[in-house]
Design a protein around this nucleic acid. Structure first.
Ligand SMILES: [Mn+2]
Ligand SMILES: [Mn+2]
Ligand SMILES: [Zn+2]
Ligand SMILES: [Zn+2]
Lengths: 139, 139
DNA sequence: ATATTTTTTGCAAAAGTGTCGCAATTTGTA
DNA sequence: TACAAATTGCGACACTTTTGCAAAAAATAT
């Protein structure tokens, strides 16, 4: 089952139309791995800003995209149905967003932490902040 | 040494004035535990928006406040000189924010993860989302 | 295929967010 | 109290995001 299929199925399941702006937003997310809102708007310049915003909000509700907070802005990525679960480190000097390797031990630790507070975990977010290798060298 | 003392000392150390807007921003941060930018601006309505922004930026540089990315906005909290390092689980049903127990093993794991990408860690953020014990029972 | 119904879009306007230069005011110091 | 330096408030500006609504597109029924 291709990403496109999963995408279409998700819309169908929720009785939503597969429209041109929605396809364009999905394509942009597949092509670029990770986008800010303004990058996404630029990628969909044939369509109205408002439509892109509405689509992004909708996709987030459907779990098609996830919002990744990176310092002051946030980035959009395809959700877990399309990409492996992962976290990011954001360089506060150059703004680069670095995907981190999977770490099952870390994930397990989080589940245990939640369990200790009788908290039923549905999702979580980890964001590392600091300086990337490149910026550390050139300073 | 009170929080106020630490605050004043931080300003003095950097040869910065203790002004009315700065005190107001600090007070707001102490009173509310955690604020968005617009909440902070509202809390300091006697002062200009630009001053509040400039103060928030300054405080962040001094480490008096930390920026906590949550979803699409970010929140401001007093930094580690004023509050213990901690993370939260947020109940998506009732909105409760549950402080999590310290977990040195988790913190260590994060440092190791960063190291694997040659990333110099200055700070990090973890946010668990799910259902609290109370809401899980009443549903 | 075409008509009908429903959903979604584009537009235009407005509200919200963050930044900047500069004159006026406040602050620290003597 | 007076002076010099630091900071503020103002006003303007450049985005960014949200909203209502008529027009267009998409889904459904005929
Ligand atoms: Mn990623
Ligand atoms: Mn931590
Ligand atoms: Zn960098
Ligand atoms: Zn709850």
């Amino acid at each position: 089952m291709s990403s496109q299929d999963i995408f279409e199925k998700s819309l169908r399941t929720h009785k939503l139309s597969l429209t041109q702006p929605r396809q364009a937003v999905f394509d942009a997310l597949q092509h670029h791995k990770s986008l800010t809102m303004s990058e996404l708007v630029k990628s969909c310049e044939n369509f109205d800003r408002a439509s892109v915003y509405r689509t992004a909000e909708l996709f987030e509700k459907l779990g098609i995209v996830v919002r990744i907070p990176t310092g002051w802005k946030y980035r959009l990525e395809l959700g877990e149905a399309f990409l492996e679960h992962h976290h990011h480190a954001t360089c506060s000097t150059c703004g680069a967003s670095i995907a981190l390797p999977e770490d099952p031990a870390l994930e397990k630790r989080l589940r245990e932490l939640a369990a200790r507070r009788d908290f039923t975990l549905t999702t979580h977010q980890i964001e590392l902040t600091g300086t990337c290798a490149g910026c550390a060298t050139n300073s």
